[in-house]
Nucleic acid binder design. Sequence first.
DNA 1: TGCAATTTGACTTTTGTTGACTATAATATA
DNA 2: TATATTATAGTCAACAAAAGTCAAATTGCA
Lengths: 141, 141
Amino acid sequence: MKKSLADKIEEYLKVLIERSENRQIEIQRAELAETFCCVPSQVTYVISTRFNEKSGYLTESRRGGKGYVKITRLDNDDPLAQMSRNNLFDFLDRIKDEQIISRRENEMLKHLAVYAFKEWPSEERSRIFKAIEEALKDYLM
Amino acid sequence: MKKSLADKIEEYLKVLIERSENRQIEIQRAELAETFCCVPSQVTYVISTRFNEKSGYLTESRRGGKGYVKITRLDNDDPLAQMSRNNLFDFLDRIKDEQIISRRENEMLKHLAVYAFKEWPSEERSRIFKAIEEALKDYLM
DNA sequence: TGCAATTTGACTTTTGTTGACTATAATATA
DNA sequence: TATATTATAGTCAACAAAAGTCAAATTGCA
C-alpha cells in the first residue's frame, strides 16, 4: 500500500504508544511536524481522524509554552462498558458544545472517568459511567 | 471469442492475485486505467462485475490521496462456510444500508471476519461467522 | 434485430495537505 | 503586579488527489 503522509504519522505514533510504559505518549505537535517535514496542522489532522474516541483513544493537550499533545490508548474493555463510556463521552461533548462545561472540564472529566476506574471490573465500570453521567446531569442541569 | 477490455483487465488482475503472496493485491484505479488506456470507471466496472463477493472476492478501498483498491480472493472451499460467510456479508450490507453501521465499519467487520479466522478449520468457520452475526445483532439491535 | 454486456465521461464523495488566522499558556519585563 | 512577548496548539477553508456513481452511447451476440 502506498502510504500517505497521514498513514506514516499514524504508524509512527502507534509504535511510540506500543513501546510506552502505559499506552500513553506525549508529543509536541510542531516537533513531530518537523520530523515529517509537514505543517503542524497535518499532525492535528492525523490525531483527530485516527486517534479519536471512536478509535479507542483519548487525547488531551495544552497550548502555549511547554505545550503538548497527550494520546492515551484506552484498553479494550467489554462492549457494555465501552458503550457506556461512549455514552458518557458523548454526553460530555454535548454539554461542552452547549457551553455548560468548558473544553478543559470536558477533558478533565473524561480523563477522570477513564483513569479513576481503570482497575475496576468492567461490568462495574459500565454502571460507574452511567452513574457519573447521572450525577453530572443532576448537578448541571 | 474476441476478448473485451473488461476480460483483459480481469485476466490481468487474476494473474497478479495468483502471483501474490497471500491472494491479495492492491492497485490504484487510475494507474491501472492508464495501463489499459481506458477511463478509471472501467476498472470499477470490472471489479464490481468480476471480483464481487458472489465470485468469492473481497474488495476494500480508500479514496483521496494515495487511495487504493484492495482485492482479496477468499478461497474457502467448504460450501457451508462459504454460505455462512455470504449470510454474514449480506447481513452486514443490510445494516449498512439501514445506516446502523457506517460504510467503514461494514468494511472493517468483513475484513475482520475473513482475516481473524483465516487459519481456522473451515467447518468451524461456519459456526464462527454465525456467532459473529448473532453477537452483532445482540449488540446493535 | 433486440437485448445484455461493455465503454465512456460528467459529476459526486471521500480523504489528505497546506497555510493563514485564532486561542491559550508560560515567561520576561516594566 | 500588570502587561507584553513568545511559544505552543487549534480551527477552518481552500485546494488536491484519489475512488465511486450513474446513465447515455456503443458493441457484440443469440
